Simulated scan of single mutants.
Amino acid sequence: MITDPNCGSKQYQDSLVAKYLDRGAHTISYLSPKWALYCDSLIAACPNIAYAYQQKAMPLIKCGDYAKAFPLVDKAVALDANRWLAYRGFLKCIFTKDYAGAIIDFQRVAKLKPNGREMDHTYAFYEGLCEMETGNYKRAEAAFNYDMLLQRGTTGQGEIHFNSLCYAGILALKREQYAQAQSYLERCLKMYAQHPEANYYVALVYRAQGQEALAMQHFNASQRALIGGYRLNEDNIFYANYPGQITEYEVVQALKQRGN
């Protein structure tokens, strides 16, 4: 229950966020116990600020304590679905692998904010990942196509994110559509030549077609990229594995299979 009548004022809420988060929690490590205390103080002062619950949940998410984090995220969504519903869908897709739940969230938020984005990607991008990971390849293809359509924009000239191309390629590989997979993955590599996953999966495409020299070239490029510190370039790869994300282990195993 809101006890302070000022909590209905956006200006008052902003002043509390500045006090307890901007000049409080955000001045220390999110691993500090004081982080949660700052968030609790903000919630006690104004329990209707959705951001307070999301910020309290954030360290728990990064530490993998989803059981404690998600009730807080759910509270943030209940208070401000327009801002936090897509975020919850993202967490379900990438962190907890609740693909069915993520799709529901993204389809719901798409009605609130058509063509919106979360973490640099369209909602359709995440729906594509979820459908791909659950084996619904036709729906995944439709989602990835829509994702790329949205990125092209009304002029049709917008740049497509390299990871959209990468995942469209991975999906095509899963469907044994090798020409299409090669096209998507090579386009990804033109944008980001050191992309470890794109190099790895296009190598699998070449191997499947008997082009072992090209396969080895890209497996080696993938390994060099990983050793050099190149990654998917998604902000949260340090806290959760993205679909299809690889390590050097997978590349080494693929290199050992040469000629088998």
Rank of each mutant, 00 (worst) to 15 (best):
P71N: 13
P47W: 14
M216D: 12
Q54T: 04
D98N: 08
R139Q: 14
W35E: 05
A225R: 08
E197I: 00
H121Q: 07
L72M: 08
A240Q: 05
E212T: 06
M216P: 00
R23L: 14
Q182A: 03
K68I: 07
E133C: 08
F125A: 05
N163Q: 06
A76D: 01
G128M: 06
K19C: 06
F70G: 00
A208H: 01
L232M: 10
A44P: 07
D80M: 09
A142S: 08
Y184M: 09
T3N: 09
G128E: 09
H121E: 09
T154N: 09
M191C: 07
A172G: 01
Y178N: 04
L214I: 02
F106W: 00
L37R: 08
M216F: 08
E248S: 12
N82A: 15
L255V: 08
A221E: 05
L42P: 02
L165W: 03
T122Q: 05
I28W: 13
F95D: 05
Y239D: 03
D74M: 15
K92A: 14
I170L: 12
W84K: 11
V202T: 07
V109E: 02
P59V: 11
L129N: 02
D120Q: 15
D40Y: 10
K97A: 14
T155E: 15
Y12E: 03
V17G: 08
T96H: 11
S32V: 12
G89K: 03
P114R: 14
P196S: 14
K75Q: 07
Y239Q: 04
I43C: 12
Y51C: 05
K111H: 05
H161A: 15
P243E: 15
R224K: 09
N260F: 10
G244Q: 12
I227L: 13
A203G: 00
I94D: 03
E212R: 03
D120G: 09
A181K: 00
Q245K: 02
S29D: 10
Q194A: 14
Y87F: 11
K97T: 08
R152L: 13
A67I: 03
N199G: 00
H121V: 07
Y30E: 12
Y192M: 11
L60Q: 13
F70T: 00
A181Y: 00
K190R: 13
A57I: 06
K34N: 14
A225K: 07
E234P: 04
L129T: 01
